[in-house]
C-alpha cells in the first residue's frame, strides 16, 4: 500500500504542477468526448423520441436494434471505422485516420445508440401518460415530439450523462482509429494504457485521478444546472 500511496502522491504533484503535456491530453479528451456526445444527442434525441412516440411497421425491430447497439464493442466499432477511413477504405480519400475527427466519429457511433435507446424509453413512458390529452387537444406530430422532449428534459440530461460516461471512459475505439499519437491523438484513456505498459505509473495514475474527477465534475455540473433550471422554470 505504501507503493500505491507513494505513486498517488507523485500523481497529485504532477496534477498540481499543471504539466503542459497533461493539460494537452485532458483538453483533447474533453474536446473529442464532448463533441461526440453533442453530435450523438443531436441524432439520438430526435431519433429516440420519434421511435418512442409513433407507431410504424418495424418499430419493435428498431427498438430491439437500438437496445442491442447500446452494447456495441468499442474495438469492433474502432475496427470498422478504421477500415472505412484507411487509405484503401471507401472514405480513405478524406484522410481522417489517426486524427481527432476519426476519434469523434468512432465515439459518436458508440454513444448515439445509448442516447437514442434511453431517450426512446423515457419518451415512450411520458407519451403513454400524455397520449390521450395530446389527442384531445389535437397536438400535431412535431409539436408532440417537441413537447415530449421538453417535458422529459431533466431525465434526458441523465441520458446525455450516460453517453458522456461511455465516451470519456472509452479506450478501444479511439486507440485503433486515433493511433495514440503524441500531441495529436493522445487522450487520457489511451495514455493511461500506454504509460501503464511502460511502467510510468505516476502519469497513468495522475490521469486516472483526473478522469475520475472530470466524471464527478461533469455530473455535479449537470445536477447543478438541473436544479437551477427547475427553479428558474417555476420562478
Amino acid at each position: 500500500m505504501d507503493g500505491f500511496f507513494g505513486i498517488l502522491g507523485e500523481a497529485v504533484a504532477l496534477i498540481l504542477a499543471w504539466d503542459a503535456d497533461l493539460i494537452e491530453i485532458i483538453g483533447l479528451s474533453l474536446r473529442v468526448t464532448l463533441t461526440a456526445v453533442g453530435i450523438a444527442c443531436l441524432i439520438g434525441l430526435p431519433l429516440g423520441a420519434l421511435v418512442g412516440t409513433f407507431r410504424f411497421p418495424g418499430r419493435t425491430a428498431v427498438t430491439v436494434l437500438l437496445n442491442a447497439l447500446m452494447g456495441l464493442p468499442p474495438v469492433v466499432v474502432g475496427l470498422i471505422v478504421y477500415l472505412m477511413l484507411s487509405a484503401s477504405g471507401p472514405l480513405g480519400v478524406l484522410g481522417l485516420l489517426y486524427t481527432p475527427t476519426a476519434m469523434i466519429v468512432a465515439q459518436t457511433i458508440l454513444v448515439t445508440p445509448i442516447v437514442a435507446a434511453l431517450t426512446r424509453q423515457v419518451v415512450e413512458d411520458l407519451n403513454r401518460e400524455y397520449a390521450e390529452q395530446f389527442a384531445s387537444l389535437g397536438v400535431g406530430p412535431l409539436d408532440r415530439v417537441a413537447a415530449l422532449l421538453w417535458d422529459a428534459r431533466y431525465s434526458l440530461l441523465t441520458v446525455a450523462l450516460a453517453g458522456f460516461g461511455r465516451a470519456v471512459a472509452e479506450v478501444g475505439a479511439v486507440f485503433i482509429v486515433g493511433g495514440n499519437i503524441n500531441h495529436v491523438t493522445r487522450v487520457m484513456t489511451t495514455t493511461i494504457a500506454l504509460e501503464t505498459s511502460k511502467g510510468n505509473l505516476q502519469l497513468a495514475l495522475a490521469l486516472g485521478v483526473v478522469l475520475l474527477g472530470l466524471a464527478v465534475a461533469v455530473n455535479a455540473l449537470a445536477m447543478t444546472l438541473r436544479v437551477s433550471a427547475q427553479r428558474a422554470a417555476y420562478a
Binding site: 390521450e132 390529452q133 384531445s136 413537447a147 417535458d151 422554470a233
Partner: peptide, 14 residues
C-alpha cells in the same frame, strides 16, 4: 370538443 379525464393529465410545466 374538449375532454377532461378522471385523472387530470398535467404537463411537467407550470
Amino acid at each position: 370538443q374538449a375532454m377532461v379525464f378522471q385523472r387530470p393529465v398535467m404537463l411537467r410545466r407550470s
